[in-house]
Design a binder for these strands. Structure first.
Lengths: 154, 154
DNA sequence: ATACTTGCAAATGATTTGCCAGTGT
DNA sequence: ACACTGGCAAATCATTTGCAAGTAT
């Protein structure tokens, strides 16, 4: 598939719930796995695999980048993690518990902001009636110009 | 910038017009450059740098991949070419003359379809009033489930 | 003539794969 | 015990960069 297929999202509210979800899949709860989860909870927002592996730049225990990638993939399989691409550069990973957040990226200033899903429901509705597509602005952000940048240019 | 900045688009209708546009920028019209333009016109849709370099799989003269990348970048600077990402995998390049087309990608079956901009104007309007963003669905497609796939699954 | 370009090799960045040793259950 | 994992090296994919040789203007 070209884009990440839809998986049933599993919203977990804390580290403990996440560990439960992992166990429920018959997966082992290893330290590397736990570290990835900890980082995701500590980050409070989208982070790259690299950032997780570095322990969020030293704030947490560092771990092996390969394992981080493998665990992120596993956790996406479980449904508690998701990733998206905000432009060129590494993918950004988030907990599904940051539920349904969708992203807006400004093509001028580069800012990426998250909005709750309700914000985009009208747009979703408009797209559905125009094209038949049930949209999720999850894997890619919506790209445009933010207020500020629209004002300061053509 | 995280995403490709907005450039004034220059819609060219044929190879000749494209070559004029290149000349007008004081750029040289080399055979490698011309080959890239030819491929873009022959393709009638999004193509990867690799596909262009292969001469659209043998239908045209092949050329060096590095030069293709360099020329695509140059042509994006001129404003007659643009690229977007339909998912993981290589970027896809299109002529701006395929003016303002925007893309819808189905996350289930992987289909990517182009729609004319008017189709998405209502959605654009909805996003603008909800967020203040002036949206262009140009650098990334809109990801969702197409009609067919929505029917055959949850 | 000479600056812009090409083409090839090598580098880079992101991510994946192979493989064998390590460890949860 | 034994299959699931971790860690490290090496491979892969997309794209970029360095540089000497080529060529539009």
């Amino acid at each position: 598939m070209t884009v990440s297929p839809d998986r049933p999202a599993v919203a977990v509210d804390d580290l403990h719930a996440a560990e439960e979800a992992v166990r429920e899949q018959g997966l082992r709860l290893t330290s590397a796995r736990r570290l990835v989860l900890q980082a995701l909870f500590a980050a409070r927002g989208p982070v790259s695999a690299e950032e997780i592996a570095s322990g969020l730049n030293g704030r947490l225990t560092a771990s092996d980048l390969t394992s981080v990638y493998r665990n992120l993939e596993t956790l996406e399989g479980v449904g508690i993690v998701r990733h998206f691409h905000a432009g060129h550069g590494p993918g950004r990973y988030v907990l599904e518990g940051d539920r349904e957040r969708e992203y807006l990226a400004c093509e001028v200033c580069g800012r990426v902001e998250a909005v709750p899903p309700e914000t985009l429901d009208p747009a979703r509705k408009a797209i559905a009636s125009a094209t038949g597509y049930a949209v999720r602005f999850a894997h890619f952000p919506i790209v445009g110009r933010c207020d500020d940048c629209a004002v300061h240019s053509g």
